[in-house]
């Protein structure tokens, strides 16, 4: 009984060890240099040896009690599996696919959620605008003091006008402005509106509504001083992009919220997972738009001091975004 030729597990190992060693070298090569470094022959060999060794592992689990061998084989098969099923993407492929197809497609699939976010913001805008019209004291209810700065109902019309047409010419100032924008209130709102959407949409809805309230109160103040048109221009140049980004981020949040509220035939976890496919793309689009808005606010708004030009630039950029969302990736669908 103790004679080695009678031991199945030992014979099993001697018959296959050369294959395992060869597989190990191939895996080593893919792990350090990547799958493209393999020749066609080697790649075929990798796939064949992986299948052989996987079958060997299931046999070894039944017949061998050599712990070292089992641990080795399990890991070898695991690493071979990972090498064989490694993602075969190129960076340019991923990026171009996102921009030409999957990004805008996700936008179109989420039209309802984005529409809801748009509704929340416009609702907020009109509520605050109307309330400010009846009593300017509402201004401080909606707008935190640090955000208002010198732009309050107490400020003179001239001071308000100056906030719309100030210019910072140096690079450092502009970069500071850009960054200040990025880490500002609105970015935080966009992030939270997206991330908190999971909790049944409610936080996203409230945040978007609140953002609408803030803009509404500002609009009320400037309109009262007959600066409504100028404010519109000032806001348009970056705001078309920026507010759309917030709305899109909130739309992504709503997609996740819908999944938690109405998972349908899936479990909540699976429903969330499915919704996250589109929601993640909305988040990336929102991030790209916020970056663009930051550039516009930091640089373009300082360069263009004319309201008509601001309107033109702002809304034509908005038009570009819209045509991207509506037109790109139609054929691939």
């Amino acid at each position: 009984m103790s004679e080695q030729s009678h031991m199945r597990s030992t014979r099993f190992r001697t018959e296959r060890e050369a294959d395992w060693r060869q597989l190990e070298t191939l895996i080593e090569k893919t792990e350090t240099k990547g799958v493209p470094s393999l020749s066609l022959e080697e790649a075929q060999q990798l796939a064949i040896l992986y299948r052989k060794t996987a079958t060997g592992l299931s046999v070894a689990r039944d017949i061998s009690m050599d712990r070292n061998l089992l641990v080795y084989l399990e890991n070898l098969v695991a690493r071979a599996f990972l090498a064989v099923y490694a993602p075969q993407e190129s960076l340019s492929g991923v990026i171009s696919r996102f921009f030409t197809a999957s990004g805008p497609q996700a936008m179109r699939r989420s039209a309802g959620a984005i529409g809801l976010a748009f509704l929340a913001m416009t609702m907020g805008f009109f509520i605050a605008f109307a309330l400010f019209g009846s009593d300017p004291a509402w201004f401080y209810t909606f707008i935190p003091a640090d955000l208002a700065g010198e732009r309050g109902p107490g400020a003179s019309t001239e001071a308000l006008r100056a906030t719309l047409f100030q210019s910072e010419a140096q690079l450092a100032g502009q970069l500071g402005m850009f960054a200040a924008f990025l880490f500002s209130h609105n970015t935080r709102v966009a992030l939270f509106a997206f991330a908190l959407g999971v909790f049944a949409c409610i936080p996203s809805f409230l945040l978007t509504l609140y953002n609408g309230l803030i803009i509404g109160a500002f609009a009320g103040l400037f309109a009262e001083r007959d600066l409504g048109y100028e404010l519109f221009g000032w806001l348009s140049i970056h705001g078309v992009t920026e507010l759309s980004a917030i709305i899109i981020a909130a739309g992504g949040g709503f997609r996740m919220g819908f999944a938690t509220l109405f998972p349908g035939e899936y479990s909540r976890k699976d429903a969330l997972r499915i919704a996250s496919r589109d929601a993640a793309k909305l988040a990336i689009i929102a991030a790209i738009m916020l970056l663009a808005a930051g550039l516009l606010e930091g640089f373009a708004r300082q360069l263009i001091q004319n309201t008509e030009m601001r309107l033109l630039v702002g809304w034509s950029i908005g038009g570009l975004w819209l045509s991207w969302f509506l037109l790109a990736g139609r054929k691939a669908q």
């Binding site: 080695q4 031991m7 597990s9 030992t10 190992r13 001697t14 060890e17 395992w20 060693r21 050599d66 070292n68 061998l69 641990v71 080795y72 890991n75 695991a78 690493r79 990972l82 976890k269 969330l272 997972r273 996250s276 993640a280």
Partner: peptide
């Protein structure tokens, strides 16, 4: 959970000689 991924440990054990061989 959302990405359906798991972080695992993948060590590289060495195949030692068979004690029974």
């Amino acid at each position: 959970m959302l990405g359906n991924t798991i972080v695992v440990r993948v060590p590289r054990p060495v195949l030692l000689p068979d004690l029974a061989d």
